[in-house]
Amino acid sequence: MRDKENTNAALFEINEKSSIPIWLQLKNRFIYLITSGYYKPGDQLPTVRGLAADVEVNYNTVSKVYMSLEQDGYIESKRRQGAFVLDVSDKPGVSIASTAEIVTIEYLKRCNELGMTLEDIEEQFGICLADAKAKRN
């Protein structure tokens, strides 16, 4: 059985050098994990305190993520029981494809901020994709 702390730390890797705020990185990751089916409707999420400790971020940061996810209809918090994933299958714009599109747009934006042209981005992406395929095989 995997160590729960190591699982959360691996699932929610934070890029402290990113221009994206930590709370938004966590929220985006949760949305991906929910829409991709990693977390299924009814699954209980890690506790706020537990996740904060596992990924070494402030408790208030994780609390903000959970409140935002609840406001957006991804999770439901039940007093003294925890946070649970809601069924978002019929929610407009919620799919792996739309989540991937959001991530791709952010990737393009960040590469543009680095001064890369679309051709540079395409070349870099191709290299990374080839490396990922090689590692998979």
Rank of each mutant, 00 (worst) to 15 (best):
I102N: 12
N6Q: 12
A134H: 03
S89H: 11
K17P: 00
K135E: 10
Q25T: 11
G115F: 00
I121E: 00
L45A: 07
E76Q: 07
E56Y: 06
Q81I: 03
S98Y: 01
L118R: 11
E106S: 08
V103M: 10
G37Y: 06
N6K: 13
I31P: 03
S98K: 06
S36N: 13
D131Q: 12
K78P: 00
R136G: 08
G126E: 00
T104D: 06
E5F: 15
T104P: 02
L86C: 04
A97T: 07
E5Y: 15
L69V: 09
V65F: 00
K133E: 05
L114V: 04
I31M: 14
G73D: 02
G82A: 09
D90G: 09
P46G: 08
R79I: 07
W23E: 12
L26A: 03
T47H: 10
V62S: 09
A10C: 07
T117F: 00
I127M: 10
Q44I: 10
L114H: 05
G126T: 04
R80W: 03
V88W: 06
Y39D: 15
E101L: 15
I75A: 12
S63F: 11
A134F: 03
L24W: 09
G126M: 01
E101T: 14
G126P: 07
E101W: 04
R110K: 04
E113N: 11
K27D: 09
K4Q: 14
I127Q: 07
M67S: 10
S98Q: 10
P92D: 00
Q81H: 10
L118T: 10
Y107G: 02
T35G: 11
L114A: 04
G42F: 12
R29G: 06
G42A: 14
L129M: 09
K109E: 11
V94K: 10
Y39W: 15
Y32T: 13
I102Y: 08
R79T: 08
V48I: 15
E106N: 10
D120P: 05
A130L: 04
A97Y: 01
E123W: 05
M1A: 08
T7S: 13
F125S: 12
G82E: 02
M116G: 03
F125H: 13
I121V: 12
D72R: 14
N60Q: 14
E76W: 01
S89A: 14
R136W: 05
E119K: 12
V48D: 06
F125K: 15
L69F: 04
T104L: 14
G82R: 03
M116Q: 03
I75H: 07
N112E: 09
Q81L: 12
G50Q: 13
P92K: 01
K4P: 05
A130N: 04
L11H: 04
S95Q: 02
G126L: 02
Y38P: 01
E122K: 08
G93H: 01
A52H: 01
V65T: 05
G93Q: 04
F30W: 03
E56A: 13
I96N: 02
